[in-house]
C-alpha cells in the first residue's frame, strides 16, 4: 500500500481552554479595556491544532496477473460472477459448474489464492449490507471448499453496497449488484 502522507496545514476547530469555563459572569465580569489594565475575566484562547491528512489515491502496485485458462473465454474459469436473488444468499444451482471449475483449479494449483467479494444492493443500511454481502461470499467460499479448494486459499470478504455494477435504482439493476465476484491473486 502506497500512502502519500500529507501534513495539511489545515486546522481543526478545537479550543484549548486555559481557564475554567465560565467563571460566573456578573456585571463586573467584563471590565473596561484600558491599556495595561488587568481584565476581570481572563480571555480564553481559542486555538486550532493542525490536522494530518492521508492521500491513499496513489494505486498500489498490482501483482502479477494470472493468465491462461483463467482468462480464456471458452473456459468456465473465465466466469467469475455469481448472482443472487433478493434477500437470498444460497448459491443457485445454475452456478454449480462454475464453482466446481474454480474449486478444481484451486485444488490443482496449491499456490493459487482467491478473494471472494460479496455484494448487496443499495437498499438499507450500509453496514447491514456489508453483512449481507459477507453472507454471500461466505456461501461461495463454503461451496468452493466443499468441492476441493483448501480453506486457506480462499478469503471471503464483503464490499456491501459500495461497489455496484449498475448505478440505477431499479430491480433490474439491483439484481446485478447482488453478486459475488471471484478474484485470483494478482487480480486485485
Amino acid at each position: 500500500m502506497r500512502l502519500i502522507v500529507v501534513l495539511s496545514a489545515l486546522a481543526l476547530l478545537a479550543g484549548c481552554q486555559t481557564t475554567p469555563e465560565d467563571q460566573q459572569p456578573s456585571a463586573a465580569g467584563v471590565e473596561e479595556r484600558k491599556p495595561g489594565a488587568k481584565p476581570g475575566v481572563q480571555a480564553k484562547p481559542v486555538e486550532r491544532p493542525q490536522v494530518g491528512s492521508v492521500d491513499a489515491t496513489k494505486p498500489g502496485a498490482a501483482g502479477k496477473s494470472p493468465a491462461g485458462a483463467l482468462k480464456d473465454p471458452s473456459s468456465p474459469l473465465s466466469r467469475r460472477q455469481i448472482f443472487f436473488d433478493y434477500d437470498k444468499f444460497e448459491v443457485k444451482d445454475e452456478y454449480r459448474p462454475v464453482i466446481e471449475a474454480h474449486a478444481k483449479y484451486l485444488r490443482d494449483n496449491a499456490n493459487a489464492k482467491m478473494l471472494v467479494q460479496g455484494n448487496a444492493d443499495e437498499r438499507g443500511s450500509r453496514e447491514y449490507n456489508v453483512a449481507l454481502g459477507q453472507r454471500r461470499s461466505d456461501n461461495v467460499k463454503k461451496m468452493l471448499v466443499l468441492l476441493g479448494a483448501r480453506e486457506a486459499q480462499v478469503e471471503a470478504v464483503s464490499l456491501g453496497e459500495e461497489k455496484p455494477m449498475c448505478a440505477d435504482h431499479n430491480e433490474q439493476c439491483w439484481a446485478k449488484n447482488r453478486r459475488g465476484d471471484m478474484l485470483y491473486g494478482g487480480e486485485y
Binding site: D22, G29, Q42, A43, V46
Partner: peptide, 21 residues
Amino acid sequence: APMGAIAYLFTKDNARAAAHR
C-alpha cells in the same frame, strides 16, 4: 438582567471558531 459575560482571545485564522464559542 445581565445573563453573563466572557472574553475570548483568537487569531484572525480562528475567527470562525471564536464566533462559534
